[in-house]
Design a protein around this nucleic acid. Structure first.
Lengths: 122, 122
DNA sequence: ACAACCTACAACCGAACGGTTGCAGGTTGT
DNA sequence: ACAACCTGCAACCGTTCGGTTGTAGGTTGT
């Protein structure tokens, strides 16, 4: 689990980049909530809140379980942790920056062959 | 510095939600790089890379200094840290979830008066 | 002086985003 | 049985996003 997929990282940070979604996440982290229980907290339609929860779910930040007519969303703290791990990786890159010798060599031109393995999505 | 602005959080996570920007950030964290030094690493135009750096700069994740004809971008590890702090807040909310009594009371309907202080941007 | 280089910015384009309304379907309580 | 409720999904709309090309201006080396 040392290397999280880039697609996952995209989804994680994108899900976190909206304040309404962050607020929803905070609420479902303290306890399970149904969409209709969440909706009246925000001044937007219930469908909009539904979509926000769906984005959080696609990123793995919330899981859902169906109970009767309502589906309850619960925040997944482990997913928050894996986002935090990505940031820790960045901080570690910074801490080890001195040890890199190619930094002193001005980072050789095509040494890393034009960002290989970097798949773009369009 | 205990409470980071929501606008800043939006900008931070949005900047981090693109894999090209995360890759740029990794490179400028190990050392200063000019846009034209960064550009050949990606199969997109120089202008596109310029825009990505601008997004990172607006989020505070990189700073720039002008030297002659080129402007050098440097990653700001403190900004990465403040993003990490936001995630730590979420994890703390989860750790303290048991202590909250209003969770047991099903989170009172308008107790938090319709998400007060929640400014939306459109 | 002049060519080569690096950056900045505007205009444009298709796709994704964040929001809406409307409708259909399963669940619950009386 | 039936009304009330909760969810799911499609269609639509304006804005932002990620990318392009083109143009202009400052800096550098010969």
């Amino acid at each position: 689990m040392l290397h999280i997929d880039e697609d996952r990282a995209d989804a994680l940070f994108h899900a976190l980049s909206d304040r309404t979604r962050r607020d929803i996440l905070r609420r479902v982290l303290v306890g399970e909530k149904s969409v209709s229980a969440l909706a009246p907290k925000y001044d937007m339609s219930l469908t909009a809140v539904q979509k926000h929860v769906a984005v959080l779910e696609r990123a793995g930040l919330v899981t859902r379980r169906r109970q009767g007519r309502e589906s309850l969303a619960r925040g997944d703290v482990a997913a928050v942790g894996s986002a935090a791990a990505l940031l820790r990786d960045l901080e570690e890159i910074w801490r080890d920056r001195i040890c890199r010798i190619d930094d002193l060599l001005a980072d050789g031109p095509d040494q890393e062959d034009h960002h290989a393995g970097h798949r773009h999505h369009h």
